[in-house]
């Protein structure tokens, strides 16, 4: 498998004329787990979204394999799956339908893995529940189950641990470790450090107004 590198190159971002972060640089390679930490309002989400190309940086670049993502033609996201802090679930669909629908947006996804993914996160019993009927923690699990359906190499996760209980955090940590063994990259923003027992973690501490 070809190696992949994602690097953030002296990124700076403003919002409403206020500096959110400046000169953030970090780079991730195969097998890295990147954890972005910091207090509320320090720009974790903004950074994550700019890595995915949803938000534009004011200065600096995001490079995928040394090429600025602006110069990648549409193929930029074919290595990356992004899971935002909003769960991206439609309340009018059941859990299964949601996963089926979301996999239509991901070229690498395998529909036949949906059941397996739900079992892994222990939400198989809710498969026919409407999303509006299940708890927030379970919704989070549903959105994280996309990681197992998708076969992408780079996971970019915004607050993947919110609403999750300890068991679920362990399940998630194991998933990330497995992904690391396969040479995948995980970039996650979080308040809660799930990575105490993990090696090879790259921390990015974002101080406000740096």
């Amino acid at each position: 498998m070809k190696s992949t590198e994602i690097s953030v190159n002296s990124a700076t971002c403003y919002k409403n004329n206020n500096l959110i972060f400046s000169d953030v640089s970090i780079s991730y390679n195969d097998g890295d787990i990147g954890i972005i930490m910091g207090p509320n309002g320090c720009g974790k989400t903004t950074l994550i979204r700019s890595i995915c190309g949803i938000q534009a940086l004011d200065e600096g670049q995001i490079l995928l394999d040394k090429i600025d993502i602006k110069n990648h033609n549409n193929n930029y996201m074919d290595k990356i799956i992004y899971i935002g802090h909003k769960n991206s679930l439609n309340n009018d669909f059941s859990v299964y339908e949601n996963l089926e629908y979301l996999s239509a947006f991901d070229s690498s996804s395998k529909i036949n893995k949906i059941n397996e993914a739900m079992k892994y996160f222990d939400i198989y019993k809710y498969r026919n529940y409407m999303v509006s009927e299940i708890s927030e923690g379970n919704k989070k699990k549903v959105s994280l189950a996309r990681l197992l359906i998708s076969q992408k190499k780079v996971w970019i996760l915004d607050e993947p641990l919110s609403y999750l209980d300890d068991t679920a955090v362990n399940i998630f940590t194991n998933l990330v470790l497995n992904h690391q063994k396969k040479g995948g990259i995980t970039i996650a923003s979080t308040h809660y450090d799930f990575s105490k027992n993990i090696n090879n973690v790259k921390y990015l501490n974002m101080d406000p107004g740096r």
Partner: peptide
Amino acid sequence: KDDFNNGIIEIYLTSDM
């Protein structure tokens, strides 16, 4: 509105399909 509040717009924008 719903797609925005649920975060599905982000899915549209980060999709490779």
